[in-house]
């Protein structure tokens, strides 16, 4: 399963820029298309497309979220996170990292969003977290 681009595409190239796995091809002002084997279902193309020309794997048209800062971000529960680093490895943009060492043998470095600007709001970290410690939350409007 993969995302698809409809013929509403105007070839602006925004999706191609945001795609973390180079799964979108197309020339400027020409129809773009998603290479299904490469697509990791992150949905970033759907959130950025000004034409709302992207469909998710279920066939629903993705809703654009105009301001990237409003895209959902991972909120990591300090109580639940066990520091297993699954989310860090899963993240396609390496926007997660570990907290600073606490300075003792008891210190567990937990996951944290270290590069919010790199986050594409895909939620793969939340999907993969083995202990359900991550929830995707849209930042409050200013």
């Amino acid at each position: 399963m993969a995302y698809t681009i409809t013929d509403s595409c105007i070839g602006c190239g925004m999706c191609k820029l945001v795609c973390p796995v180079e799964a979108i091809e197309g020339q400027p002002r020409k129809d773009h298309r998603i290479l299904a084997p490469r697509c990791i279902d992150c949905g970033a193309c759907g959130r950025i497309c000004p034409q709302e020309a992207v469909k998710d794997p279920s066939g629903h048209v993705c809703q654009r979220i105009r301001l990237r800062r409003r895209w959902p971000k991972p909120r990591i529960s300090e109580l639940a996170c066990i520091g297993c680093t699954v989310c860090i490895q899963s993240c396609p943009t390496s926007c997660l990292g570990l907290t600073a060492p606490g300075g003792s043998v008891e210190s567990v470095r937990q996951a944290m969003l270290v590069s919010p600007e790199a986050c594409i709001g895909c939620g793969i970290c939340a999907t993969d977290c083995p202990v359900a410690a991550i929830e995707m939350v849209a930042p409050e409007p200013f």
Partner: peptide, 9 residues
């Protein structure tokens, strides 16, 4: 020791 080290998962 300054922190525990966890392998993946």
């Amino acid at each position: 020791v300054v922190a525990k080290y966890f392998c993946y998962s």
